[in-house]
Simulated scan of single mutants.
Amino acid sequence: MADDAYVATTILRRVERESMAELGFGELAKRRDPTWASSVLIERYDQTIPAGDADAEELRVQLTELLRRALDSGALSDQDRGLLLDLALAANLADAPLRRGRAGLTTPSVAQLVSEDHVLAARTIRRHAANALYRLGEVARQGGRSDDWP
């Protein structure tokens, strides 16, 4: 019995040490990659949306028009639109990173927040959102023609 505990403890310590090394923490990480360990961060990546020519109101009008065209063409249902809006609100509240999960809309934490309201699994929420975003993108590329949608 004591040998089993020793083996389990050894495995846990090794997993912890290797995980930390993989993430770049600890002595093992410094020994494996001394160049990375000695590097110093001098500039942070800015995730904010740069201010362009279009102001926020113009972007809001464009998004509203795109959603209206998608609904009129049958590419999106009212449930899809509601799901996307709920995801956008949750992503904004959770301060989801824009570089992950389709601009933060399908990150696991955001999907989990929305799944409670929609009574669906987070994975199902992510799949529905991905499909809805794909169809919304198609509407944007096609200009809202309804001949390709059921």
Rank of each mutant, 00 (worst) to 15 (best):
A21W: 07
R60Y: 09
E116M: 06
L93P: 02
S19H: 10
F25C: 08
R13S: 09
E43S: 08
A8V: 01
V15W: 02
L28W: 12
T48V: 09
D80Y: 02
L89H: 14
R32G: 13
G137P: 09
A29V: 05
A54N: 11
L113H: 12
L113A: 13
G74R: 02
E57W: 11
L87T: 03
D33V: 14
R32L: 15
K30H: 08
H128S: 05
D147N: 11
A129H: 03
D4H: 08
R14Q: 10
V61L: 14
R69T: 11
N92M: 03
A91Y: 00
M1W: 06
A29C: 04
L105F: 00
L85C: 10
Y45F: 15
I125Y: 04
R145G: 12
L105N: 06
G101A: 01
R17P: 01
D117V: 03
R44Q: 12
A70Y: 01
D78N: 11
D3V: 07
V139D: 07
E65H: 12
G24Q: 04
R145S: 15
S146R: 13
V110G: 04
G24V: 10
E57H: 14
L66T: 10
D117W: 06
E18R: 10
G144W: 03
Y134R: 11
G26F: 04
A70R: 02
S73H: 05
V110S: 04
T106S: 09
V110R: 01
S146H: 11
G144H: 06
P150E: 08
D4P: 04
T48D: 13
G74I: 01
A8G: 07
G24M: 08
L120R: 11
D55F: 07
T9A: 14
A54Y: 12
H118E: 07
A37C: 05
A56I: 10
E43R: 12
R100Q: 12
G101L: 00
A103K: 05
A130N: 09
E138V: 15
E57T: 14
G104P: 05
S115F: 01
D72C: 03
S19E: 11
R68W: 07
L28P: 01
L105R: 02
A70D: 03
L59G: 07
L59N: 12
D78T: 13
P108H: 04
Q47G: 14
D117P: 00
T106W: 00
R17T: 13
S73Y: 02
D86F: 00
L63I: 08
R14W: 02
A54V: 08
L105A: 06
E57Q: 15
R31P: 00
G143V: 05
A5I: 02
E16C: 06
Y45C: 08
R145N: 14
A37Q: 01
R99D: 14
D4K: 10
A90Y: 01
G104V: 01
V119F: 12
V61M: 11
E18W: 04
P34T: 15
S109N: 12
G144Q: 06
K30S: 15
Q112K: 10
R32I: 15
G24Y: 03
I42Y: 09
I42G: 08
